[in-house]
Each structure stands twice: as structure tokens, then as C-alpha cells.
Nucleic acid binder design. Structure first.
Lengths: 121, 121
DNA sequence: TTCGTAATCAACCGAATCGTTTATCAATGA
DNA sequence: TCATTGATAAACGATTCGGTTGATTACGAA
């Protein structure tokens, strides 16, 4: 997943309204009106939120007469967990190595500077 | 994890500089200068990014003389994957149910309105 | 055609972000 | 004490975000 897609996807989840929409959509597709129902904001605002989710690749839309049902893309969510887990697992395995190196109950010191180059992948 | 913490955590990851910092920190703690090295922006800007990560609960900081080593909190990352997976798994299990109900190769239709109340959890 | 409904577009506003520059604080060592 | 190094604070500009109102498009029904 390229940087810009990650930018948009994490940004899309950084809003409680859009997260509630994701939660709703996990239970099944929904129209704009249905997604708007739990909120007090205008439907135009809801429409914008859906566009943010769509441009982030988290949802797709089809057409059913004048309705535009929104569909959650579970694979896109998996990409995000994969990105996070990649680094979480590196960090956790490093903690385990430290633990067994130092023995239990030791306060974790911070490491010496690592000189290796950064890859932005 | 409460709404505001999720807001801040996802927002923190919605920036390529901060994600690169998370990637770097997964390999070990680092100071502001070390984190700034791969970037062309000022150290003040880097310092602000670190504060964003800190307020999001993704990193913690200690003190070593005049240095302020930054430490990645793997548990915080796990909270995020847990939130995403919660809804991803609901959606995926729903797809599986549809598949076995309709037989293979069928295009997925979108569902009828679900009337149940929304929980923001 | 005309009407009603679903949804989007366009323009605008206030608040938050991301970066800069300048100045300041904190700790170390000569 | 004074200079240096690591890091933060404060103020500013440009841009983006989340929301509104008002107008417009797309479709189906009468």
C-alpha cells in the first residue's frame, strides 16, 4: 500500500462519525440516508464523509435507482492492520529478546543510536 | 479505547513522517535528532510530530541527560488493530454467510436496511 | 410532463494542521 | 562562568477539514 493511500485511510478512520459508519457498514451495505440516521449533522455532511471513506478506498458504491448503497471493503481494512502489525511485531519481538537477555523484572533501558538507514516502506 | 484516543491515534498515523518514525522506533528507541535525520524538515517540526505521537499514546518519553529518548508503545498499536479487526471480522463473516447461502460465483447484492440502533463502541 | 425523493455540487466559514522563524530552556563540559 | 548541544515554546502563514446553506442533478411515480 503506497503512502498516499495510507494517509487517506488512517485519516478517514480518525473521525468518530466515519468510524461509526464503518461499524454500521460492517453489518451490511447502507444508503446515505441510512448512514445519516444516527447523526444530527446534515446529509450533505454525511455525503462528504462517505466520499472521504471512498477516496480512502475503504468503501465502494454501486447504484440502485436513485440510491447509492455503500459497501465496506474488508480487504482495505486488512491492509491497515497489516501495516500496523508489521511494526508492532518487530517491536514486540525486540522486547522479548531484551527480556531474555536481561532476565525478568529488569527495567527496560533505551537503546544506543541505531545507525542504519531508514526505509519508508 | 475511547473515541478521542482513537481520533488522535489514527490521526497520528495519517502522516507519512509520523509513520516513518513509528517504523524507525519499532527497531529501538531514538532521540529527536535521530528521528529527524532522514527528513529535510526542521527539528522543531520533528519535535511537534513526536508530540502528536505522544498525545496519541503511541509513544512515551524518558530522560537521559539533555536527550529525550522516544519509545514506541506496542500495546497502543495493538488497540488500533483490535478496533479495525473487530469490524473487519464482522464484515468477513457476513460475506461467508452470504456465499454459502447463495452458492459460489454469485454477485453480492446489498442488503435491506438494518433497523438496529448504532453503538459507537 | 410534473412531482417527490435520494444524493451531490458549490460556495463559504471557523477551527485545526503542518511547516517556518525566532527565542528560550535544560544539561553538560571547558 | 560561559559556550555548546538537545530540545521545546511561541507566533505566524498557508492549507486542509468538518460543517453549514442553497442550488442542482438523477431517477421513479403519478
Amino acid at each position: 500500500m503506497e503512502q498516499d493511500a495510507l494517509d487517506k485511510a488512517f485519516m478517514a478512520l480518525a473521525d468518530p462519525v466515519r468510524r461509526a459508519m464503518v461499524a454500521r457498514l460492517s453489518r451490511g451495505d447502507a444508503t446515505v440516508n441510512e448512514l445519516a440516521e444516527p447523526f444530527t449533522i446534515t446529509k450533505q455532511a454525511v455525503s462528504k464523509h462517505i466520499q472521504v471513506l471512498e477516496h480512502a478506498g475503504l468503501v465502494t458504491r454501486s447504484r440502485d435507482a436513485q440510491r447509492r448503497p455503500v459497501h465496506l471493503d474488508a480487504a482495505a481494512l486488512e491492509h491497515l492492520t497489516a501495516w500496523i502489525d508489521q511494526y508492532r511485531l518487530i517491536a514486540e519481538s525486540r522486547y522479548r529478546q531484551l527480556d531474555q537477555l536481561l532476565g525478568a523484572g529488569t527495567e527496560e533501558p533505551h537503546e544506543k543510536p541505531a545507525k542504519k538507514k531508514e526505509e519508508l516502506k
